[in-house]
Design a protein around this nucleic acid. Structure first.
Lengths: 157, 157
DNA sequence: TTTAAATTGTTTATGTGTCAAACAGTGTGC
DNA sequence: GCACACTGTTTGACACATAAACAATTTAAA
């Protein structure tokens, strides 16, 4: 990189230096980029990224309550209601009355839901993989580890 | 990491394996974590992350039009109107009539705005730095490079 | 030169998502 | 038994992204 184009975007000649060195900002931009292809893969299966998260958690952890899932995904539990309504409407998830606690529901995937989530997961992995030609396996693993460290660091304030 | 807690969050015992291996998802979570401290640093100076972005671009690229800034930050140009109204109200930025094109404005920081952005930038850097004790300088540089690669990769679809 | 098309800043409407508060029903602990 | 906490749920407020439309202005085509 030469002296003249340092800190300057090649395409539009704009100096991003004050933002490009902020991890917070670069995470946002990278997330926006990934979100597009993630959302596109989900849309292909008739679903949204938010619903994918719920399916992915319940797939691996059947029987969780709505609040437990909302907590796992770090979203408000009031947002679960409409989301799970929709998933039930699609007949991929079902609310079963909890045995020990009559306030809550236990969430399970239907057989259709398991197959659906499997296919969805493969689609997402495949679509991400197509996009990730600029990352080798080591890069990818390292990035995931660093990102996890960031997420964990936040929990302890 | 033992076999029993692999793919399982230590705190709540939930299996995140389907999400934890998705870069798109991890970027989202990491971005949420960073956004909190970024927004907090901005709030301390009476501003929002979005406005910080505009200040950072105009600081380094005085004279840009509103559309050019919106394009640089990848937001809709209609969102610029209220944002720059507020920055003018704070007397940190000003719209000057463009010489060659009477449709557009050229954006400049006031002296107050330059000092403000300097202080704001220091606050953000300092606050991020406090949070980044789990990253060494090599990690940080590497992460920024990877994130930039992701952002650039998206441009070429 | 005249005319059609594109661009600028702006407003408006619409959807979407987040957030806080409240509620009835139910569980827990003193 | 009683106060308190938790569940799913609804509601309203607020921000934010998206799209469409508009007048003024510039650019390109004929």
């Amino acid at each position: 990189m030469t002296d003249t184009d340092m800190n300057t975007d090649a395409h539009n000649g704009i100096d991003y230096s004050m933002l490009q060195s902020r991890i917070g900002y670069m995470l946002r931009r990278a997330q926006m980029a990934y979100f597009d292809i993630f959302a596109e893969a989900c849309a292909k299966e008739g679903i949204t990224p938010g619903l994918f998260g719920i399916l992915a958690i319940v797939y691996r952890n059947p029987g969780l309550t709505q609040t437990a899932v909302s907590s796992a995904l770090d979203v408000d539990r009031s947002a679960m209601v409409a989301a799970i309504d929709k998933l039930e409407e699609m007949e991929v998830m079902e609310r079963r009355k909890s045995q020990n606690d009559r306030r809550s529901y236990a969430l399970y995937l239907t057989d259709k839901g398991k197959a659906f989530t499997d296919r969805l997961n493969r689609t997402v992995i495949e679509r991400e993989s197509d996009f990730e030609h600029f990352l080798n396996e080591d890069d990818r693993e390292w990035l995931l580890k660093i990102l996890d460290r960031i997420v964990q660091a936040k929990k302890g304030n």
